[in-house]
């Protein structure tokens, strides 16, 4: 496990729509291994591996963007109100810190409220950047920010902000180096704006027009206290997607991944996810339809600032994908 790279990836600033810094970082790491590299109109980074002309045209997608917040109003006292970028839950926000592109830090807290509903509304939260009044605030309406939380390794577990989906980006970077002999035309798609509606992958898949598409993203687990029934456990291997709320995986892609797991002798799980989806759902509907599937890294506490994955699952995902593309 290259912890240095993963630290850089998870800590980079990259809320949906503002992925430049993540892109620059990934570009640096994939450039030596890619036959071509380009950035498209929506900011997707596409690293191309040329096959031997006998293989298929396959997209592997991991999204660069992370959830975050955006300033929607600055009040007279210098407190900031904000809107969500992607699936941000108010309960996760209270006491969290956020960081703006210019380095400004803020604390999210909850205004005093009379209603007793268990979860506050986003409009009841504010960001405190330590300003004394409106004119003292260093950021303005429209400024995006991301949550702050370092990467920690504890045993096999990795904990950080933005593992959704920098862990996917990490896997694709490592994978690119291992598939240099693949007969297939491979498009490593580092996509933008997944968290706000699978936007980057949709247009990139249109441009590439592949024979098959596989997203590499995180999925929730059923192994936490009182979790709803879900047969995915942290550390039991990467999860091969059967269905989620946005897509039914193409049986051919699912089978390809299952066969690869057997070939690579890595454990795997089958995933049925009730809430949530991946870039594959958008790629599937491209043009006349693209057979699509996904390989998921089991992840606890998704969309909180402390997402947790297992490093063995990550290593096995790389082996599995390398076997699938050999």
């Amino acid at each position: 496990m290259n912890l240095g790279l993963l630290t850089q990836l998870t800590q980079a600033f990259g809320p949906s729509g503002y992925e430049d810094k993540v892109r620059a970082l990934i570009q640096e790491h994939v450039a030596p291994w890619a036959d071509e590299l380009r950035t498209d109109p929506l900011g997707n980074l596409i690293a191309y591996h040329r096959g031997n002309g006998k293989g298929q045209k396959i997209v592997l997608a991991a999204h660069m963007d992370e959830i975050g917040v955006m300033v929607s109003h600055v009040d007279k006292e210098g407190y900031l109100r904000f809107t969500r970028i992607g699936g941000v839950y108010p309960l996760h926000c209270i006491g969290s810190r956020v960081r703006f592109a210019d380095g400004t830090h803020g604390v999210i807290y909850l205004e005093h409220r009379e209603d007793t509903s268990p979860s506050p509304k986003l409009t009841q939260l504010y960001i405190d950047v330590g300003a004394t009044n409106k004119d003292d605030v260093p950021v303005s309406v429209g400024a995006p920010a991301v949550f702050v939380r370092p990467l920690v390794q504890q045993g096999e577990r990795l904990i950080s902000k933005a593992l959704d989906d920098r862990i996917g980006c990490y896997i694709l970077i490592e994978l690119l180096q291992q598939v240099q002999d693949s007969p297939h035309d491979l498009y490593f798609l580092f996509s933008t704006q997944e968290e706000v509606g699978l936007r980057g992958a949709r247009t990139a898949a249109f441009s590439i027009n592949p024979d098959m598409a596989i997203a590499v993203d995180v999925t929730i687990t059923g192994d936490t206290p009182k979790a709803l029934p879900m047969a995915v456990t942290l550390g039991d291997g990467p999860a091969i997607k059967v269905q989620d709320s946005g897509m039914i995986a193409h049986p051919k892609v699912r089978q390809l991944l299952v066969d690869a797991a057997r070939k690579a002798k890595v454990p795997y799980q089958l995933e049925v996810l009730r809430g949530g989806t991946t870039d594959a759902a958008a790629m599937q509907l491209t043009r006349a339809g693209i057979p699509s599937g996904a390989l998921s890294i089991p992840c606890r506490y998704i969309h909180s600032p402390s997402e947790m994955v297992d490093s063995e699952d990550v290593a096995n995902a790389i082996k599995l994908l390398a076997a699938a593309l050999a």
């Binding site: 946005g246 897509m247 039914i248 599937q284 509907l285 043009r287 006349a288 339809g289």
Partner: peptide, 12 residues
């Protein structure tokens, strides 16, 4: 599950 076949077959 989202009019999927219609979207892609009409395109095709």
């Amino acid at each position: 599950v989202g009019l999927k076949g219609a979207i892609t077959s009409a395109y095709g």
